[in-house]
Simulated assay, not measured.
Amino acid sequence: MRRDDKVEVRIGNLVKLMEAELPDAVAKAQEIWERGQRPNVVRVRRPYLRLELFGGVVVDERKPLPREKRPISAQMIAPKGLSLKLHLLMLFAAQCEVAPGKKWSQPYPAEPTPQKPDSWMGLAASVAQYAGPGVQASSVRTNKLRQVVEAMKALEKKNLVESVTGVAGQVKRGILLGCENGKSTRAASIPYTVPMDNEPYIEIPAEFFTRGWIHVLTMSEIAAILMWLDILKFDSRQITLPGATQPVTMGFVNSFDRHGWYGLGRETYETHQPLRAFQLLEVYDPPKRHDDGKWEGYNDDHREMACHKIVMTPEGFNREAGKAVLEILRRRHATGEWGRALGW
């Protein structure tokens, strides 16, 4: 599929999402946040998105780390399916319900009931259409429930959730959350607790969930945001730009580290273009070389010289995600460029 065709399909799906499920899913996230702990950020343990031991050298973008050797979040990048988005929503919901260091004893059910109106169906948003009449036909609600349950089963296979019955595959009956650090097994699961201050974790702005960004970004864009949040927290540089008086916190990643630590390929890295257009990142091109080959203001690390420098713009998450992304996608489809909205 050509790139323009992919953008057109994405526009069509986003329009359907905004007309149907997105407003309700965003409203539910806001409701859960307001009546709960009201976290400013959602903490995610670092091993979820970055390997604790270097995964190996990748010399060819066409031959990345095997999927099973990547961090948990990178394993869930796929064109279809809700597993990554649903799991992040679970972490959001847990941190709205309980404080750091605490377990969430009663996670939501897959579908709402009169006794338990909060559900994973209500928090997730997907394009689930009516298939039409016939033996194989199913309603929009049935298709949505199927998508959610399949995502829950995928999370169960990665030991991120387990059925309350203790029987594999029965997640529809209820789940318990497992720790997101990837160290749980079927034989010995580690219950999920909200990360404490003394643990290494990244911080996702709460607006990522309450303003709908979790629903409208692609899996690759979400994985890239997780990576940049990690780099900017644990491996950033204070750099003063030309003409500026105050330094800014910047991060960069080369392909060696991107593959070996984060398990992410070039497609994910190149999401810096749409993420910049969506006003979630600022991107600075490598500075110009001097005649002697030196790069002004930087050390002699050649791996750094060719990298874009990234600054996160947390205020960008405060906007309504659906409208913001739709405007940029339409501009992209019309011009072929990842340009920002007028006035930015």
Rank of each mutant, 00 (worst) to 15 (best):
152 M>H: 02
341 A>H: 05
283 V>A: 13
8 E>P: 00
259 H>F: 13
54 F>Y: 12
152 M>Q: 10
234 F>H: 00
178 G>D: 02
342 L>C: 07
282 E>N: 14
251 G>T: 03
29 A>Q: 07
8 E>A: 12
106 Q>E: 15
46 R>F: 02
151 A>V: 08
204 I>W: 09
114 P>G: 05
155 L>N: 08
118 D>W: 08
297 G>P: 08
231 I>A: 12
263 G>C: 00
86 L>W: 06
205 P>V: 04
114 P>T: 08
327 E>P: 01
88 L>D: 05
283 V>T: 15
207 E>S: 11
174 G>T: 10
206 A>E: 11
189 S>A: 14
85 K>E: 08
203 E>Y: 08
193 T>C: 15
260 G>V: 03
329 L>K: 11
140 V>F: 05
291 D>E: 15
279 Q>C: 10
236 S>K: 02
73 S>M: 10
177 L>N: 09
89 L>M: 12
104 W>T: 04
111 E>S: 15
153 K>L: 12
207 E>I: 01
46 R>W: 03
67 R>M: 07
289 R>P: 00
298 Y>N: 10
215 H>F: 05
2 R>H: 11
25 A>P: 07
216 V>E: 11
232 L>K: 04
46 R>T: 07
107 P>D: 07
42 V>D: 02
27 A>M: 11
174 G>Q: 09
33 W>D: 03
242 P>Q: 05
333 H>D: 12
37 Q>T: 09
249 T>L: 13
64 P>I: 10
282 E>G: 12
97 E>V: 11
210 T>R: 09
227 M>R: 15
18 M>K: 05
289 R>V: 04
99 A>P: 01
196 M>E: 15
28 K>I: 04
214 I>A: 09
224 A>M: 14
29 A>T: 09
265 G>H: 04
19 E>R: 12
4 D>Q: 13
48 Y>W: 10
249 T>Y: 02
119 S>P: 04
206 A>P: 01
15 V>M: 08
130 Y>G: 07
244 A>E: 14
331 R>D: 08
264 L>F: 09
265 G>P: 00
101 G>T: 09
334 A>F: 07
184 S>N: 06
258 R>M: 14
340 R>K: 15
173 R>C: 02
81 G>Y: 08
119 S>D: 00
37 Q>G: 00
182 G>A: 08
304 E>I: 05
240 T>D: 04
316 G>R: 07
288 K>S: 13
11 I>L: 07
322 G>A: 08
251 G>Q: 02
82 L>Y: 05
259 H>S: 14
12 G>V: 04
143 N>Q: 15
92 F>T: 06
186 R>H: 12
190 I>S: 09
21 E>F: 04
63 K>T: 10
333 H>N: 12
142 T>C: 08
64 P>W: 11
148 V>E: 04
216 V>Y: 09
154 A>P: 06
209 F>S: 03
150 E>L: 13
217 L>Y: 01
310 I>H: 00
191 P>Q: 09
252 F>A: 10
164 V>I: 14
332 R>K: 14
255 S>R: 15
285 D>F: 01
33 W>Y: 13
200 P>D: 13
277 A>T: 05
64 P>E: 05
255 S>M: 13
275 L>E: 06
296 E>T: 01
70 R>L: 03
105 S>C: 00
304 E>V: 09
304 E>S: 12
2 R>V: 01
191 P>L: 07
104 W>I: 04
24 D>F: 09
344 W>Q: 14
55 G>N: 06
207 E>H: 13
209 F>I: 04
341 A>Q: 13
46 R>Q: 08
230 D>M: 02
